[in-house]
Amino acid sequence: MNPLDILYPVLALAGLGVVFGILLGIAAKAFRVEQDERVPRITEVLPGANCGGCGYAGCSAFAQAVVDGEAKANGCPVGGAAVGAQVAAIMGVTLEQEERKVARVLCSGTREVTTTKYRYDGIRDCNAAYRYGGGEKTCLYGCSGYGSCVRACAFDAIHVVDGVARVDADKCTACGKCVAACPKRLIELVPESQKTVVLCRSREKGAAIRDICQAGCIGCKICEKNCPTGAITVVDNIARIDYDKCTNCGICAAKCPKHVIAGRADTDASQAAQ
């Protein structure tokens, strides 16, 4: 066997490789795109999930926006405070502390306590169901439970339990995808320490609510009268809590005849039971 039979191919391929390498090297210099060196550094500390929760098209787009001054250093909802601090360090700015938020579904109307208008057999999607008279449940404001928010969640943090979506506070990153996915606008981002939340959004009058949902706010104003800090007001037949004034004392949750005001402890306990 002629040793050249081996030498030629090796030389040819190695030569090809070297030529291509040099060409790429030259091309990398010639076609270099000027980029702020902070962009790749920020991209590196970001989670890299490209979830879009920040409102930008992926992590590198967010990094670019931070460098351009469009986005805040702590704008990544997934990374939270830890990543925010790192990004701020790269940018050389100090960070205002913002409290972690958690999504809450403002409905307590599980299957047992609500009535239905008809039987829905269509596409298992809240937006599709909503087009047929607002969905299966008689209550126009209630969670339809077909899980559009579940599919929107990239973190497996929201699940439909007994016909109502429930958020797993530990997994939630407050990215806001579920908020946008819900056709009834039932999901709200609430500060994590805010334990007292009205889990209902119905604006129906009390008498009307009593007939269709046993767990709906009837606008009786008992919470409003009993709140020591005046944080609750009833507007349009629905109690609203001013989270700045609320001290999470829990009096309203205890007094509410319909038990629609819940502390986080309550919901966590009910989740554990399920």
Binding site: L23, L24, A27, A28, F31, R32, V33
Partner: peptide
């Protein structure tokens, strides 16, 4: 690789 560089530029 080459096409990527050219496109980016």
């Amino acid at each position: 690789q080459f096409v990527e560089m050219v496109l980016q530029k």
